[in-house]
Simulated scan of single mutants.
Amino acid sequence: MTIRTTTPNLLDNVPIPVQVKLAAAWTSFMFLYIYVDLFNFYKPGVVDGILNGLVWRFDISSTLLTIFLVSVSIPALMVALSMTLPAGVNRATNLVVASLLIPYSMFNAAGATWEWAAFYGLSIGLEVLLLAFILRSAWTWPRTPAVPAGPATTDLREDLRQ
């Protein structure tokens, strides 16, 4: 009787917990979200509008800036929540928040001209892809716990190999 043992390859992918995948996706989304807003300052007339007290067609006010702060805080909070909430609540929260952010992300194209279609198409497309990854990861979250690795399960695996 021979027992086959395999040595792990350094390039093998170790399983990544769903919480880590979600936190990484929310972090990527947050950086992309912020960079798109920063790059928007380079559009002609944007900075002049801000200096004149306008963002899009809205007067700059404490209410508007509070809304903007809440908007950019959502992905940042989701990074922490994805790592700390219990699995069931975590799954539901990610499904709800990601679903609500898809139309919100698409709103960025409102009023855009064809000249800026590539910029908005790419940025919104990448945001929606990240949100779709979040939705898929949360939706397919395993419902049963994995078999823990350790001495108790090692004996079980040895029996299977024989």
Results as ranks from 00 to 15, higher is better:
Met1Asn: 06
Thr2Glu: 06
Ile3Thr: 15
Ile3Lys: 05
Thr5Phe: 14
Thr5Asn: 07
Thr5Val: 12
Thr6His: 11
Pro8Trp: 11
Asn9Phe: 10
Asn9His: 14
Leu10Pro: 09
Leu10Arg: 11
Leu11Glu: 06
Asp12His: 14
Pro15Met: 08
Pro15Tyr: 08
Ile16Trp: 00
Ile16Phe: 00
Ile16Ser: 05
Val18Ile: 13
Val20Trp: 06
Leu22Cys: 08
Leu22Val: 08
Ala23Thr: 12
Ala24Tyr: 09
Ala25Trp: 06
Trp26Gln: 07
Thr27Tyr: 04
Ser28Ile: 13
Phe29His: 00
Met30Arg: 05
Tyr33Ser: 11
Val36Gly: 04
Val36Ala: 13
Leu38Ser: 10
Leu38Arg: 10
Asn40Thr: 12
Phe41Met: 14
Phe41Asp: 07
Tyr42Met: 13
Tyr42Trp: 12
Lys43Arg: 15
Val46Gln: 02
Val47Gly: 09
Val47Asp: 07
Asp48Val: 05
Gly49His: 08
Gly49Met: 05
Ile50Arg: 09
Ile50Phe: 09
Ile50Leu: 15
Leu54Lys: 15
Val55Met: 11
Trp56Gln: 08
Phe58Glu: 15
Asp59His: 10
Ile60Glu: 13
Leu64Ile: 07
Leu65Trp: 10
Leu65Lys: 08
Thr66Asp: 04
Phe68Met: 14
Phe68Arg: 06
Leu69Asp: 11
Val70His: 07
Ser71Glu: 15
Val72Asn: 02
Ile74Lys: 02
Ala76Pro: 07
Ala76Trp: 05
Leu77Asp: 03
Leu77Ile: 05
Leu77Gly: 09
Val79Phe: 06
Ala80Pro: 00
Leu81Gly: 01
Ser82Leu: 00
Pro86Lys: 10
Ala87Ser: 11
Ala87Asn: 09
Gly88Asp: 11
Gly88Met: 10
Arg91Phe: 07
Ala92Ile: 15
Thr93Lys: 01
Thr93Cys: 07
Thr93Asn: 04
Leu95Trp: 04
Leu95Ala: 02
Val96Thr: 12
Val96Met: 05
Ser99Leu: 10
Ile102Gln: 03
Ile102Cys: 07
Tyr104Ser: 12
Tyr104Cys: 14
Ser105Trp: 02
Met106Asn: 08
Met106Lys: 13
Met106Ile: 12
Ala109Lys: 02
Gly111Tyr: 13
Ala112Lys: 12
Thr113Asn: 12
Trp114Thr: 10
Glu115Asp: 13
Glu115Met: 11
Ala117Glu: 11
Phe119Ala: 06
Tyr120Pro: 01
Gly121Cys: 10
Ile124His: 01
Gly125Ala: 08
Glu127Tyr: 04
Val128Cys: 12
Val128Arg: 04
Leu131Phe: 09
Ile134His: 01
Ile134Glu: 01
Arg136Phe: 01
Arg136Val: 04
Arg136Gln: 04
Ala138Tyr: 00
Trp139Gly: 03
Trp141Arg: 02
Trp141Leu: 04
Pro142His: 01
Arg143Glu: 11
Arg143Gly: 04
Pro145Trp: 07
Ala146Pro: 02
Ala146Thr: 09
Val147Phe: 04
Pro148Asn: 15
Ala149Met: 09
Ala149Cys: 02
Ala149Asp: 08
Gly150Trp: 01
Gly150Asp: 07
Pro151Met: 12
Thr153His: 15
Leu156Val: 07
Glu158Gly: 07
Glu158Tyr: 14
Asp159Asn: 10
Leu160His: 14
Arg161Tyr: 03
